[in-house]
């Protein structure tokens, strides 16, 4: 019963990936298919490691991942604690918060482009009237990076919130009641009853978000196309550019493999954590 799946996944993922593994050792341009690929050994990989601009892409990617995962974690966990206790209308609030992550990154990018617009954007207006400065969202390097991080955080901090909240709500009620009867302080209750329940889930959230923002493409592409200059040019964008603007297919394949290696390492961690998160009984 798994056979159709196996065939399709092999045909559309495994086989093409093997193909591009091969291509990463060749000089080849998809633009000139009639020109046979020329074997160059590790030249493409050598280019990756020695080209200065690639290191800058690494730094940009690192800033993006650290900034957006960090913010998403802080905001997400705070939101979870804010919404932890039942109240009227919680369902509606949750619906509002999860809506962003279901939207197309392209749409989200366009929302924020409108908000950041230098001449009539709302945020431009707000920052100008409040602080008297023209921030130049998406116009200057640092605000552009921050702008991308804000957009990603808007979309995905509720995801961290959801995971944390599900951990909080799964903490056994009788333990919480006992803690109350025993007059255990808040910090004790948190440390010994709640934390063990939410810790694996929070780690899972951080890992998933790290993986996703490492690959983030659509949002950045729509908002800045890597600009201004190369301020928001992450590895994912660089890969796109090398592959589909310079049509250096060999080099792009090598870069793709570098990114794959990172994601494979991360997804191994993910699976290990996920199997622990789904059985929290084994935790405490």
């Amino acid at each position: 019963m798994l056979a159709p799946t196996a065939v399709l996944l092999f045909g559309l993922f495994i086989f093409p990936l093997l193909w591009s593994l091969g291509l990463s050792f060749y000089r080849y341009s998809a633009l000139r298919p009639q020109q046979a690929p020329r074997f160059v050994g590790f030249e493409n990989y050598a280019w990756l490691l020695t080209d200065l601009s690639i290191w800058q892409r690494f730094i940009a990617t690192g800033v993006l991942v650290a900034g957006s995962v960090g913010l998403q974690f802080l905001i997400g966990v705070s939101l979870a604690f804010l919404l932890y206790r039942e109240f009227k209308g919680r369902k509606i609030v949750l619906s509002i918060l999860i809506a962003p992550m279901m939207m197309a990154p392209v749409a989200a990018g366009a929302f924020f482009k409108l908000i950041y617009d230098p001449s009539f954007g709302v945020l431009t207006y707000v920052t100008k009237t409040l602080f008297g400065v023209q921030v130049g969202w998406l116009e200057k390097p640092a605000p552009a990076m921050l702008g991308v991080i804000i957009a990603d955080t808007w979309m995905w901090s509720p995801f961290v919130m959801l995971l944390t909240l599900s951990g909080l709500l799964s903490a056994p009620k009788h333990l919480l009641e006992m803690a109350q009867i025993d007059r255990a302080g808040r910090s004790l209750t948190f440390r010994y009853i709640l934390l063990p329940h939410i810790k694996p889930l929070m780690m899972l959230a951080v890992l998933l978000r790290t993986m996703e923002s490492f690959k983030l493409f659509d949002t950045i592409w729509i908002m800045t196309q890597g600009g201004p200059g190369d301020a928001t040019e992450t590895l994912a964008l660089a890969l796109y550019r090398v592959g589909f603007q310079y049509y250096n297919t060999g080099r792009a394949s090598a870069l793709a493999y570098l990114m794959l290696a990172v994601v494979i390492v991360l997804s191994n961690f993910y699976l290990r954590l996920a199997s622990r998160a789904s059985s929290p009984e084994g935790e405490t």
Partner: peptide, 17 residues
Amino acid sequence: STRMLPAVAVVIPVYLL
């Protein structure tokens, strides 16, 4: 793992295919 791959990395070989 096929779902965890970065789309940008897969798009090149799929394009050629």
